[in-house]
């Protein structure tokens, strides 16, 4: 039973309570719900987390920004082609400190999702992000990025305008910035499209967020020629926050309420804000050179391999 069917069962129980009104049976059912939550909602498989990360009710980047930085002003456009609505960017204060905030934005319903292109940015989106980051660098403003995207959009227009080039430029320039950068994966972190906002000093992840090289569906269809095997693929891909923390790819995990972020949004936002500010206060003490150096050293060391030694040479058959 995956997480969505568990949720359905819970909703059914809750409906029964409402139908009953006040009585002893209510107390009994309430207890049943609590025990069910504790027993079932804590046992999450990797696929459950994928479902939670893509959940219809999961708070989007805008919801986070509304709570974290209520005075956020959105700034539009890349100054070259047009404004990409799947990436939002702007300036706002968090605890009175001005931040440049950039995020990929999913829609709440189909109509909204068409406007946001399902949070799959075009090159102009990445160029807008880069423009705002360079602006932040000029005014020595820290940068916060919120990542929730299935990946960069694969389409004719995107290729014509240089999707690969735009992402590469973001990676290149982001690694050179000297202001503190904090990235938070709040939902899906899909491949290069997510990494283009993720070259940060500190990378945080919500408990039920995922971060991977490609979607479990894509993985399953490449490996087994069958995208319905995605649940199986999710288990072996190591895409959950816990796995990535083990690999030291991410720095911190932000706790979510029982059953996922949408069960108690305020608590999720609060936890996120606390985690962001804790990291920021660690980073603000460091100089720009130090921040830059630490960032490139961190990314330099990513990789899972056996490093050079003389004995290794014996192993290679030429």
């Amino acid at each position: 039973m995956d997480i969505l069917s568990k949720e359905k069962k819970l909703a059914k129980l809750e409906k029964q309570i409402n139908d009953l009104g006040d009585s002893k049976a209510v107390e009994k059912l309430k207890l049943e719900i609590e025990s069910y939550k504790k027993k079932e909602m804590t046992k999450l498989t990797a696929w459950d987390r994928v479902l939670l990360a893509r959940h219809q009710k999961r708070p989007t980047a805008k919801d986070f920004i509304n709570y974290i930085s209520p005075d956020f002003i959105e700034l539009h456009g890349d100054r070259l082609f047009r404004d990409d609505r799947s990436i939002i960017g702007g300036i706002g204060t968090i605890d009175g400190i001005p931040f440049t905030i950039i995020a990929t934005q999913k829609g709440k319903n189909l109509e909204n999702n068409l406007l946001r292109n399902f949070a799959m940015p075009h090159p102009e989106g990445y160029r807008k992000a880069l423009r705002l980051m360079e602006q932040a660098e000029k005014f020595k403003r820290p940068i916060l990025t919120l990542i929730d995207t299935p990946g960069a959009y694969p389409g004719i227009g995107a290729e014509e305008r240089g999707q690969g080039h735009a992402i590469a430029q973001n990676l290149f320039k982001m690694s050179q910035l000297t202001v503190p950068i904090i990235a938070v994966v709040i939902g899906e972190g899909g491949s290069g499209g997510a990494l283009a906002l993720g070259v940060a000093n500190r990378v945080l992840m919500l408990e039920n967020a995922i971060y991977s090289i490609l979607s479990p569906e894509g993985y399953a269809s490449i490996l087994w020629k069958d995208s319905t095997l995605a649940p199986k693929a999710a288990e072996i891909m190591k895409l959950t926050a816990l796995d990535l923390k083990d690999f030291e790819i991410i720095d911190e995990i932000i706790k979510e309420p029982l059953g996922g972020a949408h069960y108690n949004k305020t608590e999720t936002f609060k936890n996120t804000k606390i985690a962001i500010m804790a990291e920021f206060h660690k980073l603000r003490r460091l100089s720009g050179t130090e921040l830059h150096y630490r960032k490139i050293t961190k990314f330099r060391n990513f990789g899972f391999l056996q490093r050079f030694n003389y004995e290794n040479l014996g192993g290679i058959k030429r």
Binding site: L195, G198, S212, I213, L244, I249, R300, F302, F304
Partner: peptide, 22 residues
């Protein structure tokens, strides 16, 4: 990217780009 190495393969993009920058 090399699918079999998952997230490590993705991180090579950032690593190589930052090497180009240096």
């Amino acid at each position: 990217a090399r699918m079999q190495e998952g997230i490590f393969s993705l991180m090579q993009m950032a690593k190589t780009s930052s090497a180009v920058a240096s």
